[in-house]
Design a protein around this nucleic acid. Structure first.
Ligand SMILES: [Mn+2]
Ligand SMILES: [Mn+2]
Ligand SMILES: [Zn+2]
Ligand SMILES: [Zn+2]
Lengths: 147, 147
DNA sequence: CTCTTATTTAGAATGCTTCTAATCTGATTG
DNA sequence: CAATCAGATTAGAAGCATTCTAAATAAGAG
């Protein structure tokens, strides 16, 4: 039995409206699939997840989306700055909903990523990049293991 | 026409002897394949290369080694501390012959890796790792692009 | 509503890596 | 210097994440 709580319903409606605007602003048509995926991605704080993660999460939420669309969407969101891609492991490719400047703990045992606030960390002594090259960003990965 | 220069020949001999000892020390049988690959890897300074890189380099050098052996060897060398694996890109997996503590420039355009000496860089303000976890290493990747 | 074009999709294809099971080789022993 | 045997190599199959293809579908404009 499903009970609809008015305030929640209103909130959900506002969310999907916001998401629609956000997609339009990024030059992306607010399709059923993109709205649903954006909801899963951005309605619960900072997250790190793989394409497969998002795909099964969508399935669990009753949203039917093909894996091809998952990949298309993750890449489009990344291009438009709504997501950031994190490279910590040769085999897993993570997408990060926290697009601000920050760094990560990476747990080699279970593949978990934990944010380190950008203000916390400072990298000093960086040499100049080679001639004709610009620094795009500096990534710090602190690899950790269970003791 | 190939001219054999005595001192080089002697040197090559010493090398293969050294490599044999090094493999034995790592608990690895000094097989024809491992000696040849170790030669390619360690006889020309610091290098960053993929399995495919090493495979074609071996072919070019006239050493017949299967791709399976390339992978086995790279992993064994990594486990025994003769190589370090570098994760900078979800698609390419690099092995680094420089096992000392150091960091990298990563060129997003062509996938090139450039060493940054460990002494040059300092990372400050690292928070404590979560309870029960140890820091294994801290990797800094400076992502650069052609201007 | 109609039309145009973007988007989605299933399934095939790709590329890198790992696995399998058969063969071979290095090292030890008699 | 054989015989032996565990460890190493191999070709090819399998696996897995990701990308591609071409056909079907849905969004937005008029
Ligand atoms: Mn909300
Ligand atoms: Mn030498
Ligand atoms: Zn993050
Ligand atoms: Zn290096």
């Amino acid at each position: 039995m499903v009970r609809v709580i008015p305030s929640t319903a209103k909130h959900a409606h506002r969310d999907s409206h916001d998401l629609t605007e956000r997609l339009r602003a990024a030059g992306l048509r607010p399709t059923r699939q993109r709205i649903a995926l954006a909801g899963l991605l951005f309605d619960q704080g900072d997250r790190h997840l793989t394409a497969e993660d998002l795909h099964s999460e969508a399935a669990r939420a009753g949203v039917k989306v093909s894996l091809a669309t998952i990949y298309n969407t993750l890449h489009q969101f990344t291009e438009s700055g709504m997501l950031k891609q994190v490279a910590v492991d040769a085999h897993r490719s993570y997408f990060d909903t926290n697009t601000g400047s920050h760094q990560h703990f990476y747990c080699e045992d279970d593949g978990a990523l934990i944010d380190i606030p950008g203000e916390a960390i400072a990298v000093s002594g960086l040499p100049m990049p080679p001639k004709g090259m610009d620094v795009e960003r500096v990534d710090v990965v602190v690899r950790i293991r269970k003791r």
